[in-house]
């Protein structure tokens, strides 16, 4: 189904503090393997438990860029057109360990409009948590609204 701007947020109707629909993502080992292949980042700490634990990690950890990409979904799903994302930045503050089971690791992402900028742009601040702790710091996106 084709989407149009009709359902997209409109700058004049969005206030600071507006909350974007929150999302929860499940990250399983298979997702890391698939992301490794799609992104070209084959660092072994993202798929080999033996190596991950030998360098002091609690388990295989998710690619920071995978976590960053999942968190962006809260913004792109809200914006309707992903091409409206002008800027997106994060700090990787804590790894997301991904266990070797069918449950995987949960990533909970919330976002809200933190500022209205010039030229119809808004800044969205994101919060991404795993097991109750933030895994991304200063996660911010600048989005051009209609």
């Amino acid at each position: 189904m084709a989407q149009t701007y009709d359902s997209a947020p409109v700058f004049d109707e969005i206030e600071v503090g507006h909350e974007l629909p929150a999302q929860t993502f499940t990250i399983r080992r298979a997702d890391l393997v698939r992301y490794a292949g799609a992104s070209g980042d084959f660092n072994v700490i993202h798929w080999n438990q033996r190596v991950a634990t030998s360098v002091g990690l609690p388990d295989v950890i998710a690619h920071g860029m995978f976590t960053m990409a999942l968190a962006a979904r809260v913004v792109t799903d809200w914006a309707v057109d992903p091409g409206r994302v002008q800027e997106y930045g994060v700090r990787f503050t804590r790894p997301v360990p991904v266990p070797d089971d069918d449950q995987g690791a949960l990533l909970e992402v919330t976002g809200k409009v933190a500022a209205k900028l010039d030229d119809g742009m808004v800044r969205v601040d994101l919060t991404a948590t795993h097991a109750g702790a933030k895994v991304l710091g200063r996660a911010q996106a600048v989005v051009a609204l209609g």
Partner: peptide
């Protein structure tokens, strides 16, 4: 082997 990804940012002129 000692490298950790600390921060990442993108600025898009267009997608």
């Amino acid at each position: 082997s000692r490298v950790v990804h600390g921060e990442q940012k993108f600025a898009h002129t267009r997608p």
